[in-house]
Amino acid sequence: MAPFSLMTAGVSMLAKSFSVFSCTTALARCTSVLPSTYINPVKYLTSQTSGPPKRPLNGYMRYVLQQHPIVTRQNPETKPVDITRRIAQQWRTLSPEQKRPFQEASQRAMEQFKMELQHYQAQLTPAQVKQQTLEKRQKLAKRKAIRKKRELTSLGKPKRPRYPFNIFMSEHFEEARGTTSQAKMKSLLEDWKNLFSHQKQIYVQLAEDDKIRYKNEIKAWEDHMVEIGREDLVRERKKPAAKTPVAKTGTKKAKAKAVKKPAATGKSKTTTRSTKSSSAKTV
């Protein structure tokens, strides 16, 4: 009876494994038919201790992530920039029905993101909220500075003058010692410190010439900005120091004389008194 029981147990285990295998193959077939936006696992709300939840991707970015490996496989010699452009062109040609699955998945992810963000903000302390607002302001200021720099570059603002060491480094960077850029800069700094004064004077003169170049170019550029109506990009030019008017200095001297006059009147009073007393004595 024991061998028979072992045989039945083995048959049952074999049947169970066959059923599991059939279920997994069926699931794989189903997932291969559905787009990847439908099979993303659902994230449950958890305590976000490390940081706030990340904002989900929109429908277009989901389409890009799905099509990027396919287009790359079909065009292995194409540059990544051209692949992205090709995917963007495909997205424009899609119909609203074809775009709907990606947009709906993005909408569901956005709703979940809002719930997670609300749950995360409820766990923050006042100090953490203050810190987050400060970091947000810093990020906005950084983005604003980057946009302004790009705008100035597109408008052709001249580059600022270089320092003597910068000129020396640009001339000898390729032949510097070291494999990395940091090692090369460190070796160039040591070489710069070991230079003689007459050797440094060459780069100092080049830097002075570069200052003159910048001064002329920035003046012409600012005049052009005023002509096209962009006075907001012009620097605030230093106004000449206002000279003290002569009237004010005269008033100060007059005040000083007025202060000294009472002493003089006091002396005159004593002299008149002395003359009066002498005249009385003579009488």
Rank of each mutant, 00 (worst) to 15 (best):
F4D: 08
N58K: 05
K144A: 15
F173A: 06
V64Q: 03
R150L: 12
K99P: 09
A127P: 00
A256R: 08
L65D: 02
R160W: 01
E77M: 11
E77C: 08
C30W: 12
K148F: 06
Q128E: 15
T84G: 03
Q121K: 14
S36P: 00
A28E: 14
A2Y: 06
Q131A: 15
S279F: 06
V259G: 03
N75M: 07
G59T: 01
M115A: 14
S279N: 15
T78R: 11
R55L: 13
M7W: 13
S36W: 00
M115N: 13
A247T: 10
S47V: 13
E208V: 04
I218K: 07
T282I: 14
D210R: 07
L27H: 07
E174T: 14
K252T: 07
R92E: 07
K54L: 14
A207W: 00
E208T: 09
K248W: 10
Q103P: 00
D210T: 08
Y60C: 01
R213E: 04
Q199M: 05
P240Y: 06
F4K: 11
P245G: 13
K238G: 05
S197K: 15
K193F: 09
R237K: 15
S22F: 06
Q67D: 00
H224Q: 14
M185F: 02
M1W: 05
F168Y: 07
Q66K: 11
P41M: 05
R147F: 05
L94Y: 10
E135K: 03
D209A: 15
A241P: 00
K260Y: 03
L57N: 00
L34K: 09
P76R: 06
K238W: 03
V246R: 07
G156A: 09
A28V: 13
R73C: 08
E111S: 11
Q131H: 15
Q48D: 12
N166M: 15
E151C: 05
L206N: 02
T25Q: 14
Q66G: 02
T251Q: 11
F21N: 08
V259T: 10
S19A: 13
K211W: 01
E151V: 01
I39S: 14
